[in-house]
């Protein structure tokens, strides 16, 4: 199965369940192949005075690894996710309040950052927070032969020469965030961006379908 997947460019089967936790204001679990992330959102709520921002909401993002305590890698991912969310959220609508997003890694089988981004977006949607646009994450890997793999598994990521993750917005399909590892040429970067933009359409279509399904009985 793995060999077949390598030759075609495709996103692994992905799925999402929203509103699965009772305590958070919004929650979602996003599954990409075997990678799985659970997200919970609290807010807008009261903010600590030390973290208060006078003209917008304070967004805190926490990524919890499955084993052990969060380290530098989690902090770096948190920052990527936070900056993407801050760009998408209309946080000026809730000044002097706090939004907290907690992401729990359930299983890591590659493309974890993009899975985190997708889970975050679905959870924010579930929480009903106002956003200027939606966003999704797409991970591309370049294997030693120079071929592009989208949504790589952990094994594929390990064997690849470069791994890139892009956050793409739904309005204009622009790149909101990029995180890259390894070496690649300008041409390869542009190709990966173009592939990610194309792949993002699939994910946005999925968002649309899941929202339509969710509100099919109320609308």
């Amino acid at each position: 199965m793995e060999v077949e997947e390598q030759s075609i460019i495709a996103l692994r089967e992905f799925g999402c369940e929203q509103n699965l936790l009772s305590r958070p204001d919004g929650s979602a679990s996003f599954v990409q192949g075997d990678s799985s992330v659970l997200a919970g959102v609290y807010g807008p709520a009261e903010v600590k005075v030390s973290k208060e921002i006078y003209d917008r909401a304070t967004l805190e993002v926490v990524i919890q690894p499955k084993v052990g305590l969060p380290g530098v890698r989690e902090r770096a991912r948190e920052q990527c996710v936070r900056e993407t969310c801050e760009a998408a959220l209309l946080s000026f609508l809730h000044p002097r309040s706090s939004l907290s997003l907690v992401l729990q890694v359930i299983h890591d089988d590659g493309s974890l950052l993009s899975c985190c981004l997708n889970a975050a977006c679905m959870a924010l949607m579930d929480a009903g927070l106002p956003m200027g646009c939606l966003f999704c994450g797409v991970t591309c890997a370049i294997d030693p032969e120079g071929r592009i793999i989208t949504d790589p598994t952990a094994q594929q990521e390990k064997n690849s020469r470069a791994v890139m993750t892009f956050a793409i917005d739904s309005a204009q399909h622009r790149v909101m965030m990029s995180s890259t590892k390894g070496s690649f040429s300008v041409n390869e970067l542009q190709q990966c961006i173009a592939v990610s933009q194309r792949a993002s359409e699939k994910i946005f279509q999925f968002y649309r379908d899941s929202v339509r399904r969710r509100y099919s009985k109320t609308l």
Binding site: F14, K202, D209
Partner: peptide
């Protein structure tokens, strides 16, 4: 609230 897609 849940939706799943195939390989895209």
């Amino acid at each position: 609230t849940a939706l799943k897609t195939d390989v895209a």
